[in-house]
Structure formats: C-alpha cells, structure tokens
C-alpha cells in the first residue's frame, strides 16, 4: 500500500468558452521503480501510479500511461478547453489497485 498519497491540482476558477487553460497537477507518491534494493539486498517491489486521466463532464482531456521512469511525485502540465461551466475529474491509478480522484469546478463565461 502506498502511503501519504496526496493529489494537488491547479485549475483557474474561471475561463471564457473555448479559451485554452493551463492545468498543473502533482501527486505525492514515491513511484517505487522496482529496480532499487533494500539494505538486505532484496529488490523493493515496484509500486507506481501507472495511469492518470483527466475528464471534463465525461469527456476526455488527457490520458497518460506512466512507467517507472516518471519521477517521484508525478507532475503533469497540459492545456484544456471547456465549452461550458462544469467540473474536471482527475484520476490517478495506483499499482496496488488504489484510485485517487480530485474534482475542480470551473465557471465559464
């Protein structure tokens, strides 16, 4: 089980329709690569976030497949356009089966 996992996202509170808005996300996660050894020389099992998705009212913005070469505390920055007021849903999928989500509303004028 990954511990201390904490997602954070930065989304503007408002935008105009069709405007490209910048979104930044961070999730605190050690992203254990499966290549490190512990003090006894045993391989520390891989435990990473393997997928990250962003949807807006059910429509997809970005869907990322992650490998162990993504750094600790995975960071993503990308751009979205939104047609109307609504909510982004951010979802991180952990190797251990856990799913972390975060939701952010945006007002479109």
């Amino acid at each position: 089980m990954a511990t201390g996992v904490k997602p954070r996202v930065r989304v503007p509170k408002s935008a105009s329709a069709g405007e490209a808005i910048t979104i930044k996300t961070l999730i605190s996660h050690q992203m254990e690569s499966g290549q490190r050894k512990d003090k006894e020389g045993n391989i520390i099992p891989r435990s990473i976030i393997n997928r990250f998705t962003v949807d807006f009212d059910g429509e997809n913005v970005i869907d990322v497949a992650l490998e162990p070469a993504i750094s600790t505390n995975p960071y993503f920055e990308f751009e979205a356009t939104v047609p109307a007021s609504g909510s982004f849903v951010f979802t991180w999928y952990d190797d251990d089966g856990d799913i972390y989500t975060e939701e952010k509303a945006i007002t479109v004028s």
Partner: peptide, 14 residues
C-alpha cells in the same frame, strides 16, 4: 482527448 486545447504536455522523468 477531444478537450485537450493543445497536444502539449510536461512532466518530470528519471
């Protein structure tokens, strides 16, 4: 996806 404003992304790697 269809709501991506650009085909741009940034991340951090090992």
């Amino acid at each position: 996806g269809p709501l991506a404003a650009s085909q741009f992304a940034s991340t951090r790697i090992r």
